[in-house]
Amino acid sequence: MSPPRQALDAIGHLPDPEIDIADAALQFARVDAPEADWQEARAHLSELARDAVAVAHGIAEDDLVSRANALAALITGRHRYQGDANDYDNLDNANLIRVIARRRGLPVALGILWLHAARAAGWGVHGVDFPGHFLVALEGSREQVVLDVFAGGAAMDGRELRALLKRVEGPQAELRPGVLAPMSQRAVLLRLQNNIKIRRLHLGDVAGALACTEDMLRIAPDTASLWREAGLMNEQLDRVAAALRCFETFLGLVPEGEAAVRTRAAVEALRSRLN
């Protein structure tokens, strides 16, 4: 097994708060781009952390606007990161090593850098599971500031969040409870890798999408939906035994419900092919 996959397996055993999100994303990137200079990327992450500690000096504890401005000046200004709107579907935009080299990426890939810097500064921060567009929130004692890191860290008020939701879900969409739900470390990493999985499927690369899914399961082995997806992809690739293992793991996690009924039917059909 490759060293980055060993690292991902180790992450799968960690409590969520103990995950170093940037290092975990770096391990995913090493798997997908083994020829890339991951050590240079790691050195840059260390530099970014040191810079964040320096810019945090003197900012008041609950001055979220100054914190947001300091991070924007550091990441968008000094280090010149930006959202890649012109080549959005480029797989490099979801690979942290490539993102660091190119200084461009998807919202969630850039967001990981913002989370990394904010935490190095000692600030409360989390990813936001906004529909269709990853956001970052800086946490204060009584409020939070939501930032669009793809737009350079622009602060989003209620009107702008509502407009963004309508662009994603349609003109009838309205802000609702849970739309700004904080994401766990694992959830952010899975959202990052999901971009790669989906793009590979769109390209017809089922084997590549399956490999991505299997790596996602290394850090989140109890995510039932991923086991079912892996089973379906193995079935599509005519890997019957592997599909059965994935479906049976899914059923161990989700023994009841409509998805379980469909999965049991798929298991029976696959077992009949082995007889």
Rank of each mutant, 00 (worst) to 15 (best):
A7K: 10
L8P: 00
L8Y: 02
D9I: 12
D9M: 13
D9V: 13
A10M: 07
A10G: 09
I11M: 06
I11A: 05
I11H: 07
H13V: 11
H13L: 15
P15D: 13
P15W: 09
D16Y: 04
D16V: 02
D16T: 03
P17I: 01
P17M: 03
D20S: 05
I21A: 05
I21E: 05
I21V: 14
I21W: 03
A22K: 00
D23I: 09
A24R: 01
A24Q: 00
A25R: 04
L26K: 00
Q27H: 15
F28S: 02
F28Q: 01
F28Y: 05
D32N: 13
D32Q: 12
E35K: 11
W38R: 09
Q39S: 12
E40P: 01
E40M: 10
A41L: 03
A41R: 00
S46V: 12
S46N: 14
L48C: 01
R50I: 06
D51E: 13
A52L: 00
V53T: 14
A54G: 09
V55T: 08
V55E: 10
H57A: 15
H57Q: 15
G58N: 07
G58V: 03
I59T: 09
I59R: 08
A60M: 07
D63K: 07
S66V: 08
S66D: 14
S66P: 06
S66R: 15
